[in-house]
């Protein structure tokens, strides 16, 4: 799966789980600036990443670098899947 496909899947998930017609959700939209309401939203994304992409998310991975935008989330997933044993 390439970066664009991962981004698309994450965006679909976010739009379904946290519908917010007042914000146009692009791959660069700041997720921490209003898309997520609270840390429960973060938890849902963690579960989504684990179940969809097989990531192994740790507490330390929940940081502003990884959760800033769809693009950074996608980069995190790519890094996780690349480092995962075959």
């Amino acid at each position: 799966m390439n970066s664009e496909e991962i981004c698309a899947k994450i965006r679909d998930f976010l739009q379904t789980s946290f519908p917010n017609p007042s914000i146009e959700l692009t791959y660069e939209t700041g997720l921490l600036d209003g898309w997520f309401f609270d840390s429960m939203g973060i938890v849902q994304v963690v579960i989504f990443l684990e179940s969809t992409f097989g990531c192994n998310v740790k507490a330390a991975d929940v940081n502003a670098d990884n959760f800033a935008t769809i693009r950074t989330l996608s980069e995190f997933v790519m890094a996780q899947t690349e480092s995962a044993p075959a």
Partner: peptide
């Protein structure tokens, strides 16, 4: 409301 996660430095 904005979530502030670790690493969100200014």
């Amino acid at each position: 409301m904005k979530i502030k996660l670790r690493g969100a430095t200014v």
